[in-house]
Design a protein around this nucleic acid. Structure first.
Lengths: 145, 145
DNA sequence: GTAGGAGCTGGAGTCGGCTCTAGGTCAACC
DNA sequence: GGTTGACCTAGAGCCGACTCCAGCTCCTAC
């Protein structure tokens, strides 16, 4: 196994992570990197595959709604190395709970939305075969769930 | 059936919808009411049960991530009355799709989070029976999903 | 009659998370 | 050797969705 340790430019990292170069610099400023981003001779940032891997995790955590401060805290814990696994676990568990709740809320909301879609579909299906419309029941407009 | 049509103060509506009084005034400004909010003799807002019902729907739509402009558009359509059900259906279908996607993304993210929780749990379980720690594998810290 | 609390208005402020600008350096190609 | 184009910094700006403020009017209760 050869350790290639290829270095990537900020543009390449942006491409592979889906983050913008702006965001990458911003994240760096926010302490969202486990180890300091290296620089080339001319001051340009050099990223490693590890950085990309870490960012990939970050993207998923952010996509699931983890706020930057929590992400920064998690990064700090990882940076500090072994010995703080309890706190990492607590952090992840809390996030897990929040995401689970959020999925629950969205699923519930989806019920109403599905219902509304059904109402309008029925309404339009009925209207199309030349049945007199004017069926303005409470659900179609603004009924509660 | 007696039509009671009790009127509610902004504070009462805030209480029943979970929205703040600030937000209620803000939503009014933003056009998120189907019919203009009535006012009492001294200029205070008077809400009806219909208003509360509508707001309840709005809260659910907002909770599922519908942006205010879309919510405003939907409100406009309902305000205009029957005849625009196609557009309402389109709007709801689009939102349905987005919420479904979002649930999908969150569910996927949850996989990683669940995995991470598992990793830390295992790590701590192993460490507790006085086994030498120092097991710093790539997953525990920053491994990719 | 006065103190407290709820409500009013218009407009400013906040927060999270980017996103962009200005003014530069540097490397590479034509 | 000139022109792209990617990159650099510090700092400003933006967006969505509230949230709060100042300064006022009412109503109710003591």
């Amino acid at each position: 196994m050869v350790e290639v340790t290829e270095t990537l430019s900020i543009g390449q990292v942006a491409e592979r992570t889906g983050l913008s170069v702006h965001t990458l610099r911003f994240y760096e400023q926010e302490g969202i990197f486990v180890s300091p981003v290296r620089r080339g001779s001319t001051g340009r940032r050099l990223y490693s595959q590890d950085d990309v891997d870490w960012l990939t995790v970050c993207v998923i955590l952010r996509a699931s709604g983890m706020p930057l401060p929590a992400l920064r805290r998690y990064t700090e814990l990882v940076r500090e190395g072994a010995g703080n696994e309890e706190e990492r676990l607590a952090l992840m568990r809390e996030h897990h709970g929040r995401v689970t709740e959020q999925i629950g809320r969205l699923t519930q909301s989806l019920d109403l939305i599905t219902f509304k879609v059904g109402v309008y579909e029925d309404l339009l299906d009925e209207a199309r075969p030349a049945v007199a419309p004017g069926r303005q029941d409470q659900w179609a407009g603004d009924g509660a769930a």
